[in-house]
Design a protein around this nucleic acid. Sequence first.
DNA 1: CCATCAATGTGAACGGCGCATACATTGCAA
DNA 2: TTGCAATGTATGCGCCGTTCACATTGATGG
Lengths: 248, 248
Amino acid sequence: MENEADAPSRAHYHHGDLRRALLDAALELVSSKGAEGFSLREAAREVGVSPAAAYRHFEDKKALMSALAMEGMGRLALAMEKALESVPGAPGSAARATGRLMAVGKAYVDFAVQHASDFQVMFGPWCDHQEPCDLPPEAKPLGRDPFRILVDTLDELVSSGAVTAEARQGMEIAAWSSVHGLASLLVSDALPLDAKEQRLALDLVLRIQLLGMGCAPSLLGLDGKRGKADASRSATLLANLFCKLNSR
Amino acid sequence: MENEADAPSRAHYHHGDLRRALLDAALELVSSKGAEGFSLREAAREVGVSPAAAYRHFEDKKALMSALAMEGMGRLALAMEKALESVPGAPGSAARATGRLMAVGKAYVDFAVQHASDFQVMFGPWCDHQEPCDLPPEAKPLGRDPFRILVDTLDELVSSGAVTAEARQGMEIAAWSSVHGLASLLVSDALPLDAKEQRLALDLVLRIQLLGMGCAPSLLGLDGKRGKADASRSATLLANLFCKLNSR
DNA sequence: CCATCAATGTGAACGGCGCATACATTGCAA
DNA sequence: TTGCAATGTATGCGCCGTTCACATTGATGG
């Protein structure tokens, strides 16, 4: 169904790259039917191979899920790198550095929401976070995993002068927690926000983070009229939340 | 194995409260073997009843998990209420209000770490977060779910004067995200911290949060010598993290 | 050029699972 | 007492993960 002439073998036995095909099928199945409902047999069926064949390439189901999770981490890293690239501003400027932190945060949350099942696999009881993640080819040359990207982006805040080196200490944990928490709550539907509300919530979370790091409010557009506008948008967000909370 | 004389029936048929017994067995099994490995049949076996009997009390496995999740939410609410009670300070004072926010945050993270599997069930693909949660008897009179407790605790910050009403807007989302994010990362072992590091990380996250809300640094013990001590502790935390990051 | 062999896929089987259906037992209420 | 709704049992279906013996293949070396 995939390769008929280019693979070394032409018909049945000796699939070109069964491992890859299984991972692709698994990705699609997990995306469409959720992580819980995924079955190794169904992935094998999809690829057109017997269930036992999968065991020539993965020790067990958990190993397949783990490989899937590592590739997910790689795709997340790529999404973050791409988001970083497209941030405007003078290199080395404080405005650009804060913009880049906002961008990686947005990329993280967007990835979680758009690939919710992948995200659950990546942070579920499968993935072993001690192993290196599996970067896609486009992200290979840079060789940064998501956490490394966050660390580097925080360092830029210091070198650009947006925050002091002292205030930066430990911020990988605080920033990661905030953004990961928002992403998790959205994915688990504990915080049922629509796309617009998600954007506002992320803005809020990241601004709190930067303010807490001692970043100048003027860098975040929080003085004058912009500040007032933000406050009223937050109020709208809150009103919606309370409505949902009380209606249950 | 549980009731032999006090239940209305004495021997086999008509278990006293099978629903309760199944939920208790499920809680224990999920705690000991993880949420993924849990099976309805095993819970029935544990209680000493046929597998099909469970379907007289739960529509399907998902319904049982959902009930378990709701009870977990109730236990979390109780833990937060208890943590709130034991915070000292003059009622209405800003110091007490900030202490109470720190306390609920600590209770949240501690619950997640100590009942990791429950926590996964509560925020996994089971629990329907639109339904009211199932409070244990001790928490019934107050009738507050975890989110409500957070909202009320944030309101205390305003009424005590620790933060302005304007700065408070939307903070339920930001505060919940931070704390939930830290809890999730710890539970999924993406952030492998020991107990002491967890405490420091939580302090950091909550302080950032309060600072971002415009809370006076003096309220958080961040001026003078205390500030320096915190900075050096954070540095230790960071050094450990980088060690772990680089060793892989 | 062909024998050999490691790699890779197949088929059948095992026990466990979620769930449905038909049936048995019980307590209660008319 | 009798009938009935509630509650538990027995059995069976199809799917699952996993294993093991066996089949097929492409590459290697005599």
